[in-house]
Nucleic acid binder design. Structure first.
Lengths: 222, 222
DNA sequence: TCTCATATGTAGGGTATCCTAATCGTGAAG
DNA sequence: CTTCACGATTAGGATACCCTACATATGAGA
């Protein structure tokens, strides 16, 4: 049962995230998430199952698909926790820009022991979210399920607070940072142009016109 | 030429360290250092050579054995640098005890990009040594060769300063820390018991009798 | 009930890395 | 000058992944 490799960890993390984003975890979805082919994923899922980290429910009904076992859940949560703590570390301690930390954290997450993870969390002040606003699982693997909605789905006049950005890296993040559209920022929709046009939003004293590509990725709460 | 794997990095680091500790780098020594068999090492050395990271000198005379090329040297130095910076980080920022950080750093060193490495060094105040006293290679790969000698080799009456501890982890380090025998600590030999007996040393106001197993691993400078 | 689109799985093949056992080569010693 | 010990290498085999091509199975709709 040599399934504590870095590769296996990637799978567990991906399954954990898919499982928590709701919906059924299938081989196909996993393959898409990981950028691999279905047979490769199918094979690894068998290994993970043999190792007792994953189980398959019948293929019909609600609870179908791939599920993490108790052990797998703990592993997956720990990986996500380490990933997001790493991002916080890179931003808070090393002053790195938030649009590059995801990739760096992908490597770091596999290099943190529970001990280092715990001390890092403490040094960082036990943060609750990553720089993009995603919740950091607790040491017990718990993850609050906030119900966020895309900014796109607000109506004119609605006010909200940015919860997280559904994008881990790239130009979009740089753009948002340049506008000050960061997690926990209050934002209000002033108008919505028809035919899938831009949203006119207010942030503090500023007003911006944001396209759907952007507003789809800004997740807000009330 | 897929030789930028974590495994290959381990080899490069080991070769770098053996090369700098003087002496010839052979397959056998490498195998011992890495805890692998000779055939495995032989094979990887071929891969590294194909990748232009290593070269073999003739098997006689001074410069024989395995040598890092320019490229390999840079890689090796970077790995050692990241390893020792990681140790500093673990001790200075996360308050971990110095006898456990080696193992943690073994994992971390492969997860640091040049960018992260640079920022980490800066945040830590560009330290020159790891917690055990070993010099941290510069960004250019340079490594000063201090000429240290084992405490064992001093004569009664000699005074010196602890340079580094030739041991990365374990009880010995805990023991030394409990006595305050850390790098940069002044130390004087008061007497040496015959028949490979203990050394009586003075450290500040304290006096300790240290066995050869211990004094062999305490490297000092003047 | 039967058929088909689609997800899943099997077959077969490739690479990187490790191992054990056997072979090769060379300097030193007789 | 021959032999031998020992380090290096080759041979052959295992495992963990990954892939492409092909086979199966199943729910949905005819």
């Amino acid at each position: 049962m040599t399934v504590r490799t870095e590769n296996a960890e990637e799978y567990l993390e991906a399954i954990f995230k898919l499982q928590h984003s709701g919906g059924t975890v299938t081989v196909k979805r996993l393959a898409a998430e990981l950028g691999l082919t279905s047979p490769s994923v199918s094979e690894m899922v068998h290994r993970l199952r043999a190792a007792g980290l994953v189980e398959r429910r019948g293929r019909r009904g609600r609870g179908r698909g791939i599920r993490l076992t108790e052990a797998g859940l703990a592993e997956g949560a720990a990986l996500v926790r380490r990933h997001r703590l790493s991002e916080r570390f890179l931003v808070d301690y090393l002053d790195m820009p938030w649009d590059v930390v995801h990739e760096e954290a992908c490597k770091l997450e596999h290099a943190l022991s529970p001990e280092v993870e715990a001390r890092l969390a403490e040094q960082l002040g036990n943060p609750l979210t990553c720089p993009h606003g995603h919740a950091i699982p607790g040491e017990d693997g718990s993850l609050p399920d906030e119900r966020l909605q895309a900014l796109t789905d607000l109506r004119p006049g609605d006010a909200a607070v940015i919860g997280c950005i559904a994008e881990e890296e790239g130009d979009l993040l740089r753009y948002l940072a340049s506008l000050g559209l960061l997690p926990d920022t209050p934002i209000a929709v002033e108008s919505v142009a028809p035919f899938n046009g831009p949203l006119l939003v207010r942030v503090g004293d500023a007003q911006y016109a944001l396209g759907r590509e952007v507003t789809d990725r800004i997740m807000v709460r009330h």
